[in-house]
Write a protein that binds this DNA or RNA. Structure first.
Lengths: 355, 355
DNA sequence: TTCAACTCTGAAAACGTTGCCAAACGCAAG
DNA sequence: CTTGCGTTTGGCAACGTTTTCAGAGTTGAA
């Protein structure tokens, strides 16, 4: 029949056993369909200037051979990969998974693939991931910078023309790039003000390590709220550490057992809120509680947990849209988007101070 | 100085304004370092057979030009992409985010990048994602099949030599491929047996749509436990639907308000558990409750929620390891790994039947 | 000195696309 | 029967790597 060429490799043949069958190329398709290579390319990429007859021949051959365009070659030739990279801290953290979901949605709508990697807060790992993404020539990057990220390599890539948007924290080392952040200061302030409005004056603050931008901003908001209300900040009521660390929950127990225990607690991030909540349930203590960042089941606790909600999905969506604007060639000065928080009242933040 | 060639494009030059600067290639590096192209390639890929002197020259040139290897070209030439694709239902679901995290960890250790996409349970979308991944020539795929996936395109890719491992549900359409599943039937059975052991005889079952493999397996486990205990299955106590759907929570309220209300509830997946929990809190009703799949804060509820825990991280890890074994050329018959569940007793499952 | 066996190096041919270019074709008008 | 124009078509040169191959040096032994 004249089509003894470019048959898909026979997997069961002893010769090919163990050998990954190599896929047919456009050349194979062209040979099979009896047309030129360029015609195949045109059909595959939806170019209309192909006669219906030939187009049908090509499609037929494609089906018969199980041809799939090799995007590595396409990318090499075209210089764009139709993919973007996302660096977050941890997929499991709902904040980041919501962010990732929103980014994915925007990318999907744009026919772009999403490469996601978790930095696990490790600057070395972040660096490795970013450089790897750049080697793959992603069209752009959305990055949650790690604390202590050296900015140099980021700046190099940026200068090399890789668009970047930073999320959740400002770009490190004074890099001039787009960013999408939550108003951490204002959010924390409003949460603490809420506690103050309910009569609390001794308010503990549990936050992540100070070296993290958002953590320190929130502590700043906490301090500011107290100061505005004329309450002296008591440093023994402030605990800043990784929520998963050993002494985190114990610090709360210690405070509550102290001479002048706090009557309310401000948990400056979702990990803290959950760790503290668990500790409170265990000891059956009920100080007022306001958490920063909403979480699933906050409304199913008793009492429901009052939170300062932020909007990770919005952050992701806005960042992705801004990134694609840059990819499409937008050249203006860098944008800083700051998202307002919303206080959600559920009960735990309205507990009056125990006297 | 002789290096007036291959300078990085000047972004501020009016000519290049708006034009993405094209990155230096190995050729540029070679010219700059005054060596051959192959030598640069060798240095970049860590080939040792290069004299220290030349190697230093090359590294220097690389630094000066900000060269980064173009992986599209590398991939095209080598035929492997060092990346794998993961298709899950939804990143936000903790089951899948834990799975994804584990897969990422294995991939990272293998220097492989991870492409993740959410099918959102849409067979069309799954198909599009899988084909897109295949066009990118991922080295392998880990897939959560959607219900009603047609198997044909999967089989084609499989035959074309793309290794695949299916997770959470068996491969569709009788495809012969590796899979890693939870023992849904056994897990559900043990959860319901636990309720029976605590004296319950009227046990409601809330599950996802029956068309989902895991959902129907769990319902089967529920039925089996009842039958073994000599309890007649009451179909009005079984509700199968998407947990997010309108009537899901209301169905529970209706049952509890009925003539012969259930004294216990078996929630066959984490979404159901959470939705039901919220409903129960709202109405202050306290039937016994056992949920399938553990969740954050299950221990912080009052009472703590007894669950049949499954291990999404293990599923992901095992699937990824199996996938890499296939990528490395392992040819044996397909493996089916079934993971046991573990009952975690926390209180809600030990509530005695109200009389 | 010669030859063999190294090590190091660069030229050149892939890899599978895309996109430019020119040739070939069809058809209508002159 | 030309001429001209517009539409299809195929050839061919990129794209930036890796890899093979053979040549050029170097060394050591005969």
């Amino acid at each position: 029949m004249g089509h003894d060429k470019a048959e898909p490799a026979d997997r069961s043949s002893p010769v090919n056993a163990g050998r990954p069958p190599s896929r047919p190329t456009m050349n194979d398709v062209a040979a099979r369909a009896g047309v030129g290579l360029s015609t195949v390319s045109r059909v595959v990429s939806g170019d209309t200037r192909v006669s219906e007859a030939r187009s049908a021949l090509v499609r037929q051959a494609i089906r018969e051979l199980g041809f799939r365009r090799n995007d590595s070659a396409r990318q090499l030739r075209r210089g764009a990969t139709e993919s973007i990279g996302l660096v977050i801290e941890d997929v499991v953290d709902p904040f980041f998974s919501h962010l990732a979901q929103a980014v994915e949605e925007v990318a999907f709508a744009r026919n772009s693939l999403l490469l996601t990697s978790s930095s696990t807060r490790d600057a070395q790992r972040t660096r490795r991931i970013v450089l790897e993404f750049c080697a793959r020539r992603v069209d752009g990057l959305i990055i949650t910078p790690s604390e202590s990220d050296e900015a140099e390599y980021l700046r190099e890539e940026l200068d090399a023309g890789v668009p970047m948007v930073f999320v959740d924290r400002p770009p490190p080392g004074g890099i001039d790039a787009d960013s999408v952040l939550t108003d951490d200061f204002g959010g924390a302030r409003s949460g603490v003000e809420h506690l103050i409005a309910h009569g609390h004056r001794r308010i503990a603050c549990f936050s992540d390590r100070d070296s993290l931008y958002s953590a320190s901003e929130r502590v700043r908001g906490y301090r500011h709220a107290l100061e505005v209300a004329g309450i002296t900040v008591d440093p023994t009521l402030i605990h800043s550490a990784t929520p998963e660390s050993e002494g985190f929950a114990r610090a709360l127990a210690r405070m509550l057992a102290g001479a002048e225990p706090p009557t309310a607690v401000f948990a400056a991030n979702n990990r803290s809120t959950i760790v503290l909540l668990r500790e409170l349930v265990r000891h059956e203590m009920r100080p007022a509680l306001v958490g920063f960042d909403d979480f699933e089941l906050a409304d199913a606790m008793s009492p429901g947990v009052t939170v300062v909600a932020q909007f990770p999905g919005e952050i992701g969506r806005i960042a992705a849209e801004q990134l694609f604007r840059r990819i499409d060639g937008a050249r203006g000065p860098s944008h800083l988007t700051s998202l307002r928080t919303r206080l959600i009242v559920r009960g735990s933040g309205e507990v009056p101070p125990a006297t």
